[in-house]
Computed example of a mutant assay.
Amino acid sequence: MTSVPAIGFEYRPSRGFERALACVTVLAAVAVWLSGMPWWGCLPVSFALGAALALACRRWRGGAPRAAMWAADGHWMLRQAASEDVAASLLSFRTGPACLWLRLQPASRPPVSLLLAPDNSDADLRRRLRMRLAATRTEEPVAAP
């Protein structure tokens, strides 16, 4: 693509995703209590579910970059919490009606997932990213069988 502008945005983890995760955890705990298991068996399972929720939310918030930029040449840059810029490559992406999920691989670090939802990004940013992702998908060469 020629003359494609860079797309940069500040990122904060989606609170809606954390709320949905908490609702699923509560439903799982209710299912355990309704399963017919004795109360002394349900109690530790419920505590384990709560601990798993707390760890998942901490990991979701802690590993997220503070900002991201998709340069005109197709390279990604992530700004980490310590104001350190790290080059990254796009591993995969998923689009939904109101959300966009990006999976990026920073250099010498574990992969990072960015969920862009209505509560943490504006519609124009998600639209521009969707359009550019669709254009890059069509530009990839198709392997001959």
Results as ranks from 00 to 15, higher is better:
residue 76 W to Q: 05
residue 26 V to K: 01
residue 19 R to H: 13
residue 20 A to F: 08
residue 111 P to N: 05
residue 119 D to I: 01
residue 80 Q to T: 11
residue 25 T to R: 02
residue 52 A to G: 09
residue 30 V to D: 04
residue 129 L to C: 03
residue 70 W to P: 08
residue 115 L to P: 05
residue 123 A to L: 14
residue 16 G to F: 04
residue 111 P to Q: 02
residue 71 A to G: 06
residue 66 R to Q: 06
residue 45 V to H: 00
residue 85 D to F: 15
residue 95 T to A: 13
residue 67 A to D: 01
residue 107 A to E: 15
residue 76 W to D: 07
residue 46 S to T: 14
residue 40 W to T: 12
residue 100 L to S: 00
residue 136 T to I: 02
residue 97 P to Q: 14
residue 54 A to P: 08
residue 43 L to M: 10
residue 94 R to I: 03
residue 58 R to Y: 13
residue 66 R to N: 09
residue 88 A to N: 04
residue 41 G to P: 11
residue 135 A to T: 12
residue 91 L to G: 08
residue 61 R to F: 12
residue 105 Q to Y: 02
residue 82 A to R: 14
residue 61 R to W: 07
residue 62 G to H: 03
residue 26 V to D: 01
residue 3 S to D: 10
residue 76 W to C: 03
residue 69 M to Y: 02
residue 111 P to Y: 03
residue 51 A to R: 05
residue 40 W to Y: 15
residue 37 M to L: 15
residue 29 A to R: 01
residue 81 A to F: 09
residue 29 A to G: 14
residue 112 V to I: 11
residue 33 W to H: 13
residue 80 Q to P: 03
residue 78 L to F: 02
residue 140 E to H: 14
residue 88 A to P: 05
residue 24 V to N: 05
residue 37 M to Y: 14
residue 47 F to Y: 12
residue 50 G to S: 06
residue 93 F to Q: 10
residue 57 C to R: 14
residue 31 A to D: 03
residue 135 A to S: 14
residue 68 A to H: 03
residue 86 V to P: 10
residue 47 F to H: 09
residue 14 S to W: 00
residue 29 A to P: 00
residue 63 G to A: 12
residue 40 W to H: 15
residue 8 G to E: 06
residue 71 A to S: 07
residue 40 W to R: 13
residue 62 G to W: 05
residue 22 A to H: 07
residue 8 G to Q: 11
residue 124 D to S: 11
residue 52 A to H: 09
residue 125 L to R: 03
residue 8 G to S: 13
residue 129 L to T: 01
residue 6 A to L: 05
residue 96 G to C: 06
residue 117 A to T: 00
